[in-house]
Simulated scan of single mutants.
Amino acid sequence: MQPTADFWGELFGPNWTAQGVAATISSAIALVAVGISSIVSWVQGSKTRSHVDAVNEKQETREREFKGREHWWERFEWACAEVASGDETRAGVGLIILSDLSVSTWANASDKLLIASVLDELFIEDSDEGEGIEDEASTEGE
C-alpha cells in the first residue's frame, strides 16, 4: 500500500507540484467534457427518437389514406359497372353505392365532381334514348 500512499501524498501533500496540479485540472476538465457530451448525446437521441416516431406516424397515416382511397376507387369502378349493366336492380344498387361514395371521407372535391359527371352522362344517355322512344311512339300514333 505504500505506492498508493505515495501517490496521494505527492498529489495533495505539502509538496504540491505543477504536474500534480496539471493532472488534477486536466482530469476535471475531461470529466466535465464527458458529462457534457453525454448530456448532448442523450438530448439528441431523444430528439431523433421523437422525430422518427413522428415520421412513422405520418407514414402510417399516408398508407392508411392510400389504402382507403384505393378501396374507394375499387368501389367506384364496381358501382359504375353496376349502373351501366342495364339491369334495373343492379343499377339501383350501383346508384346507392355511388351516392354513398360521394359523401365518403375518402372522396375529395374532384371525386365528387367525377361522380356527378358520371351520373350526368348516364342520365343524359338514358334520357336521350328515352326521348327517341317517345318520339317514335308519338309518330306512330299520328
Results as ranks from 00 to 15, higher is better:
Glu57Tyr: 09
Val40Arg: 08
Ile97Gln: 12
Ile36Asp: 12
Val52Arg: 15
Arg49Ala: 12
Thr61Trp: 14
Glu57Val: 02
Thr89Ala: 07
His51Trp: 15
Ser85Ile: 00
Leu101Trp: 01
Arg49Ser: 10
Ala81Gln: 15
Cys80Ala: 12
Gln44Ser: 09
His71Gly: 14
Glu57His: 05
Glu77Arg: 08
Phe66Lys: 05
Ile97Leu: 09
Trp106Lys: 05
Glu57Lys: 09
Glu77Met: 07
Trp78Phe: 14
Asp100Thr: 11
Arg49Thr: 09
Thr105Trp: 06
His71Thr: 15
Gly86Leu: 03
Lys47Trp: 13
Leu101Lys: 02
Ala91Met: 00
Ile96Met: 14
Arg75Gln: 14
Gln44Ala: 11
Glu82Arg: 07
Gln44Asp: 14
Gln59Val: 08
Val55Ala: 11
Trp106Asn: 08
Lys47Pro: 03
Glu88Gly: 08
Val40Tyr: 13
Thr48His: 12
Val83Gly: 01
Arg49Val: 08
Gly68Asp: 10
Val43Ala: 11
Glu70Gly: 03
Gly94Ile: 00
Trp73His: 10
Glu60Thr: 06
Asn56Pro: 03
Ser37Trp: 08
Gly35Ile: 07
Cys80Val: 12
Ala91Phe: 02
Lys67Leu: 13
Leu101Cys: 01
Gly45Arg: 02
Gly92Met: 00
Glu57Asn: 09
Glu74Ala: 05
Phe76Cys: 03
Ala79Gln: 01
Ser85Asp: 03
Ser102Met: 08
Ser99Pro: 04
Glu70Ala: 09
Ser46Pro: 05
Glu88Leu: 06
Glu82Gly: 07
Val43Cys: 05
Ala84Tyr: 03
Ser41Tyr: 15
Ser99Leu: 06
Val103Glu: 14
Ala91Pro: 01
Ile97His: 10
Ala79Phe: 02
Ala79Thr: 03
Ile96Tyr: 15
Glu77Gly: 05
Leu95His: 05
Ile96Glu: 15
Trp72Pro: 02
Ala84His: 08
Val40Glu: 12
Thr61Ala: 12
Glu82Trp: 04
Gly68Trp: 00
Leu95Ser: 02
Phe66Trp: 08
Ser37Phe: 07
